[in-house]
Design a protein around this nucleic acid. Structure first.
Lengths: 297, 297
DNA sequence: TGTCGCTCATGCATTTGTGTATATCAGATA
DNA sequence: TATCTGATATACACAAATGCATGAGCGACA
């Protein structure tokens, strides 16, 4: 065990090897060569005093220790990326990289036009969009700004409440023509429905507020809201999706408009430290304005 | 502006230069030479595309940009240190480095015997003690375990409430012999008292709960509780300190035992991810047990 | 079985980075 | 003014890290 601190570059190499699964793949990723990567890992291992990988001819198998160090290396990488983003914003005016995190649905269906307009206004702005629902993004600085659907509990965050995005039950006209349009909620179990795959916290909360959900045995299960809306559009059956999104397609029919509507609370969140940073400031404002317009105030 | 990501080692060099104020000092700190440090900074500057320091013959003056990047580099360093601590704990059993954060008072007067006993029990444990009251330590992983006096609001933390450490007014017998012992609280303004220098959040809360405090114009002001207790011990005047600590010195007299007692809530806090880590687990337990014993259950 | 594609390991030439030594400048002190 | 101590910058030699080329092992597939 050497007494001197290992090069921080070794941590990056280590993480890349963990992510890619082999020295060669990590080398391609980092723009280095496989022998170099191998030597980095060797050096890191001797430095910390234990083995990180079991070498095999079909790749590297991480040891327990390596698995335990991985999250640390990921956080390190997140910080390094955040530093680089901060650096990219230097030089006056609105410039540099801003990283936005949003759910798949919001990120794919709702944000793009807003971000496009923002880019038109600020040509020097580079926008990264990370599709994730993790609440910890901002604190780990994996993103600068997040669009979230639950109240952020953490301090040190600037939270702007947008309002409720209405969720309704929808089906494609083609499906309804073939299988009939349910008149009463009780008929729902007789229909092909689209639901969640795993029992996430959100789904459990949903079950509590809508007891009816328990009766439904979805014939199409997907955790991805995007996959769900794709299934609705494909005429697979009846599913829940944002009312505003469904309205864009004239062939999507809303069902039980009076009886069924879930509110999806929406927030735009940013770390307090970034509020004076021009690139984050304008992006935050643009998202707030855009989303307010989207829900129709 | 180069397109390739700078070496993470450059970040470490940058931070050290910021901390030390010169290339030469940073070189000594890092065990490298001044030309090497200079080249690192050069490389980092060309990589991010703007100047970080204005060179002068008596050191380096950081630019605005450098000042803005510094906190990012510090967080990066904290993460790197946390990774290394995690690595130090590998290998089975209780081993490696654990970093404890506590207030000056607790860290100097209360913890040392507990930590000594802990070390006796686990010889392979290396204990780092960081004296700080910052609440963000744990989230930034600047420490593994913290002893705090306010309720931690953040999620993802394991919080163990210890109880209240009683704070009382005390003076040295020598002072009382010379200036008399106040009989009523109203006499306090006539005495030499010891108080806080700046209006911290804690002091404001204290003022609210003890209106009398407003009448006192401390003749000795210090933010450091250690300095305050030192002043009490030196017979400077009347000040507040932990009752348990005062009891250790037979010449310290408690005043207004019936009328004045502030509770100092105490918690031991750890990040949830560390609860399965042996070195953190045993240290957490030792601190909880030790502090419970200290307040006398 | 032979070949292709992937992997890691190793020897060697080259590039890159580092250290040593030195020059230069600014400020404090006698 | 002379001197000492701190700082950065630069030239040059050396050490260290990297890339290249190659060898060898394993699995998929024809």
């Amino acid at each position: 065990m050497s007494d001197t601190e290992p090069s921080w570059d070794f941590y990056r190499t280590f993480l890349t090897v963990m992510q890619e699964g082999s020295l060669s793949a990590a080398a391609r990723e980092l723009g280095l060569t496989q022998p170099t990567i191998g030597r980095h890992i060797d050096a890191l291992e001797t430095s910390i005093g234990f083995q990180l990988f079991i070498r095999s001819t079909q790749g590297l198998i991480p040891t327990e220790a390596a698995l335990e160090l991985r999250p640390h290396a990921e956080q390190l990488a997140a910080k390094a990326a955040a530093l680089l983003r901060a650096a990219s914003g230097q030089g006056g005016g609105v410039r540099g990289t801003v990283r936005v995190s949003a759910s798949e649905m919001i990120g794919v269906e709702v944000l793009p036009p807003m971000l496009a307009a923002l880019k038109d206004e600020h040509p020097n702005l580079i926008i990264e969009l990370s599709l994730s629902d993790s609440v910890e993004d901002l604190l780990r600085q994996e993103a600068d700004i997040a669009v979230r659907n639950i109240t952020p509990t953490q301090d040190a965050l600037i939270v702007r409440r947008i309002g409720n995005i209405p969720i309704g039950l929808h089906a494609h006209r083609r499906y309804l023509d073939k299988h009939g349009t349910p008149e009463k909620l009780e008929e729902l179990p007789l229909h092909r429905t689209i639901g969640y795959d795993r029992e996430s916290a959100y789904v459990r909360a949903l079950r509590r507020s809508v007891p009816l959900m328990d009766l439904m045995q979805p014939s199409f299960r997907a955790d991805s809201n995007l996959a769900q809306i794709a299934a609705i559009r494909a005429g697979f059956g009846i599913g829940a999706c944002q009312v505003k999104l469904a309205k864009r397609d004239p062939d999507l029919v809303r069902l039980f408009e009076a009886e069924f509507e879930l509110p999806l609370e929406t927030f735009v969140v940013m770390h307090e430290n970034l509020k004076t940073t021009p690139r984050c400031r304008v992006t935050f404002d643009a998202l707030v304005d855009g989303l307010l317009a989207y829900i129709g105030r």
